[in-house]
Design a protein around this nucleic acid. Structure first.
Lengths: 219, 219
DNA sequence: GAAATAGTGTCTGTAAGACACTATCGG
DNA sequence: CCGATAGTGTCTTACAGACACTATTTC
């Protein structure tokens, strides 16, 4: 095909939508923004943007997080392309869905100034532009990640103790895990800080009770 | 965002490339076509095409298989979007990679008239437009499919006996499987035709030797 | 000592790997 | 009977689930 053929056909607009997930109050949540203008104005949706000329998809995802949610510095991953011509009433738009997972602390400012709000992923109803499908795919993918690997998205502060890691995995998966089985599964994939151990002063209520735990780092 | 904003920015061309896999001579192979014209003329590559206005990605994948490879009637699945701006020297082109898996009989005509040729996936070298990455992702995805599920892409003729199914899985995975373990894993996911059983006349050399085997169907 | 959490031993059930035995065909 | 393939029994190993015991801390 000659170069000129590239321009014979109309081309679609390409959008990037990002399901930005985090763990807050022990639950997996997704960050939604309130849309401005247009006929979807005021509705909650995922942050998204149109791809600029020559821009990488991952860069567009980072840009829309920065511009629309005021957060930055993460690692979006592609999920799927949504291509239903009737999906977007503004015209012919392909949406490349992405997922990213970040610490809730990195979202605090944006939540406080109203740029975004967190919604429990189990309580997501219908969203504009079929965004609820993107959330579902994102949640499935991230939960699969957390089934076999210790904190693959780096949500936890290092070093950490096993119960902190287990709390995190339980929050992401939305169900309880067995204490002993979880340890035996994860320990070979962690670097044990043999030297150190601290009282679990990090625990709830400021109380520090119980035997001190071994500290670990990711490999 | 207003409708008019959609047209303010330049838009990329969107291509669809398909890794069409099949099993031939006991090996997993990918169908390649020989490119016509352009500076990549004569090189082998995956069949691909540009997305037409209002067209679904899956339909574009089917269209390019029909137009360029002369085969039709399958079920392409999305793999990944390749967005490196330097990937395609013809301009700004996003490629949505797809995978499909079909019976080699459905490709016979196209092979005979030279529309496409089959290459063992283990022998793929560099291809234009980074197509070897697409092949790798396609092979990984299909092999994952065949690890746990009996013939998920429907390559086998029904009804079939267990050794035919195992031969197929061994061809796709590119390694031997255990006879007894394979049966115990797959049998619960199949519908056993209790009534029927035929001599394995389907076997090599026209010879029909050994105990007749139970016939199965997919659920 | 009581309460709380960390770490580990161990029993049971399940499933894969490996091997071998029996079953049923053609010749 | 032999050769060949189908189907299954069983031993071993590994590991998840489940339970309980020991260990180390605060109060």
């Amino acid at each position: 095909m000659a170069v000129s053929d590239l321009h014979k056909y109309p081309r679609p607009s390409v959008a990037v939508d990002v399901a930005l997930l985090t763990v807050d109050e022990g639950r997996l949540k997704v960050a939604l923004i309130r849309r401005e203008g247009g006929d979807k104005g005021g509705e909650l949706s995922l942050p998204g943007t149109f791809l600029h000329e020559g821009e990488r998809l991952a860069d567009a995802a980072l840009r829309c997080l920065s511009d629309k949610a005021g957060v930055r510095g993460f690692h979006p991953r592609q999920l799927h392309v949504f291509d239903d011509p009737k999906r977007d009433d503004r015209g012919w738009v392909l949406s490349v869905a992405h997922v990213d997972v970040v610490r809730v602390e990195d979202l605090r400012k944006a939540i406080e100034n109203g740029s975004l709000q967190l919604i429990d992923v189990e309580l997501i109803g219908n969203l504009p532009y079929a965004h609820e499908e993107i959330v579902q795919k994102a949640v499935d993918a991230v939960r699969r990640n957390y089934l076999e690997t210790p904190d693959p998205w780096g949500l936890i502060e290092q070093p950490f103790i096993m119960s902190q890691l287990r709390d995190l995995h339980e929050s992401v998966l939305g169900r309880q895990l067995q204490r002993d089985t979880f340890r035996r599964q994860m320990e070979p994939m962690l670097q044990g800080t043999e030297e150190t151990a601290v009282p679990p002063s990090v625990r709830v209520g400021g109380e520090a009770r119980g035997r001190p735990a071994r500290l670990y780092r990711r490999n």
